[in-house]
Amino acid sequence: MNDVALKPRVGAVRYLNTKPLVHGLDSASTPFTLSFDYPAHLADQLSLGLLDVALIPSIEYFLGDRYRIITDACIGCLGPVWSVKIFFRTPPQQVKTLALDEGSRTSAALAKILLAEKIGVRPDLQALPLGSDMRDCEANAILLIGDRAIHPPAIDAVEVWDLGETWVEWTGLPFVFAMWVARPAISTEVIAKSLMEARDGGMENLEMIAEREAAKYQLTTSECFHYFHDNLHFTLGPQEKEGLMRYYHYAVQLGLAPSGRTPIYDDCKIAR
C-alpha cells in the first residue's frame, strides 16, 4: 500500500471562499490528501465514510452522527457575505415559491429560517440544480450561493437579501456557514494543526491569494481581496459559537434539525 493511501482524507469546499483556509496545503508534506467538492457533496462523503474530515455546512454538523468540530478555522461572516443571496421577483412578504441552490444546505436552511421567523413566510420549495440556468427558473425567489451568487445572471429582482447581512442585523450575532468536522474515532491532532496553520498563513497572505485567484472568478484583485478581508470571517470564537447555536435553535423550531444536539469541540484553539 502506498503512502498516499495511508493518509487521512480531507475534503474542502471548491468555492472561492475556501482559498484562505487551504493556503499551502498543496505541499507534499501535508499529512493528508485534500480533495475539493460542493459543500453538500462533502457532507454526503463524510457521512458515507469516504472522507475522514471535511469542511461541511453547519446544518450538516447537527444532522451528523457524533461529529466533532476539530479546529477554530471556519467560514463565517460578521455582516454582508456577498456570496449568499436571495433574489426576490416579488416583495418578500408575497413570496409563494423559493428555488434553493443545491450547493449548500446551510444557506438553504438559513433562507427558510429568515423568511419564516423574520417575516412569517413559508414558501413552497423548488430545487435549483447545480449548473442550471437560473433564468429558466420561475420561482418567486431564488437562493444563490458561492460563485454564482457573486456573478448572478440578469434576474428581474425587486429586492435582494444578502443573507449574512440579514442574519447579523436581525440577531446581532455572526453567522457560521461551515466548519472543519471529523467523523468519530478519527485521530485529528495533526490534521487540526495543519488546518489552523493553513488558515493563519492564508490570513497573512490575502493579497497574494487574491492576485492568484481573482481572474479565475472574473473578479479584480481588489474585489477578491475585499471579499476575503471584509466579507468573510475565518475564526470560530465565542460569538461565532453563540451564533451557531442560535441558528441551530431556529432550525430545530422549523424541523430542519433534530433537538438535543450539543456541539462537540476537540481540544482546539478557540479565539478569546
Rank of each mutant, 00 (worst) to 15 (best):
A108E: 13
W82I: 03
I86K: 04
Y67G: 07
F87P: 09
P80R: 15
A109T: 11
Q94V: 02
D72W: 04
E60C: 11
I69R: 12
L42Y: 13
A108V: 08
Q45K: 14
V81F: 12
E60F: 05
T106G: 06
L48E: 12
G64W: 04
C74W: 04
A99C: 07
K96S: 11
I69S: 08
A43P: 13
D52G: 10
S58R: 07
L51K: 14
P57R: 06
L114E: 04
L55P: 00
I69K: 11
G79T: 10
L98M: 07
W82F: 07
D52K: 01
G49M: 05
P91Q: 12
E102W: 02
L50H: 14
G76K: 12
Q45I: 00
I59F: 02
C74K: 08
L46H: 10
S107C: 09
P92T: 02
L42M: 12
L51V: 10
P91F: 09
D52R: 12
Q45R: 15
A54S: 13
G64Q: 06
I70A: 06
L78D: 02
G76D: 02
D52N: 14
I69G: 11
I113V: 15
L100N: 01
K112C: 02
F87M: 04
D101K: 10
D101R: 11
R89T: 07
G103H: 13
D101P: 15
I56S: 11
V84R: 13
T71R: 05
S47M: 04
I56P: 10
R66F: 01
I86G: 02
R68L: 03
R105L: 01
T106M: 02
T90W: 00
G64S: 06
Q45F: 06
R89S: 01
Q94F: 08
I59H: 09
L46R: 14
T97H: 11
L42G: 01
K96V: 00
L55N: 10
R105P: 01
I59G: 01
L78K: 14
T71A: 04
P92D: 00
Q94N: 11
Y61D: 06
C77Y: 02
F87K: 03
A43F: 10
Q94T: 04
S83F: 11
G103F: 00
L114G: 13
S107F: 12
I86W: 08
L55I: 00
Y67S: 13
D72V: 01
P57S: 08
G76A: 14
S83N: 15
L114I: 13
S83D: 15
C74V: 15
V84T: 15
Y61S: 04
E60W: 09
L51G: 07
S58Q: 05
T71K: 06
C74N: 11
L55M: 09
A43K: 11
G103A: 15
R105Q: 13
L51Q: 14
C77N: 10
A73Q: 12
L110G: 13
S107I: 03
A111D: 05
L98H: 11
L51D: 08
K85L: 05
T90H: 11
S58F: 02
W82Y: 09
C74F: 10
R66L: 02
P80L: 03
T97C: 09
A54R: 12
